[in-house]
Amino acid sequence: MPHQCTNCGRGFEDGSQEMLSGCPNCGGNKFQFRPEGADSSPPSEEPPEPPEPPGGNSTVAKTVGKTAATVRDIVGSDEPPAGAEPADTGDASGTVNAGSTDAEDAAQASARGDVVSPDELPDHAPEGDHQFDPPAADSAPSVEPPADDTQDRPDLQELREELNSQFESVKVLAPGQYELNLMELYDREEYIVALQEDGRYSIQVPEPIQE
């Protein structure tokens, strides 16, 4: 379940349309990206790694902790995007199976239902590639993908990539080429202040003391 409601912990499949109108359980509108294999503990339990600022108030500490965890999940994950099949993720209760969601449109169901063959995948994509990192930037930031890369890609592959990227706020296609998800950028409490060539970015977290 790649996405999880940060309020009640309910899980959602990648591309689930239910999330778009808020969590059906609690109405929450903040979701955390949780790649398969990542710790599936509920978001109320703080991850141990991010140290809480000493003396800071708990809300801010939580926000910073969550942000750090989210960024770590996004940047550190080695989950290949093509591996996010619904059948692999039906283990958690409360998980919405996107394949059977009535509200899902045919294109999404078809994109998720079919699997591309390995020879359809671009050759240069590293095995540990993640949707957040640009294929070329992960291993060699200065190398750009061939110009006709996107044109030659089969429709299904394109659809899948679009689905995978729809919850990312900024997708780095190559150095100097970006796709922006405006709703994600608008919805985030923290905001991006600096992009880096390797696909990572620096964010500004909410200030602890508001005037």
Partner: peptide, 30 residues
Amino acid sequence: TKVDYTEFLEHDMEKDDAVRRSREATEGVA
């Protein structure tokens, strides 16, 4: 929703400058 440095190359800009402009524009939209 899309920023592409190649768009700036048409305006007599060097590639490095165009890539930087593209990155800054993306940060600006964010």
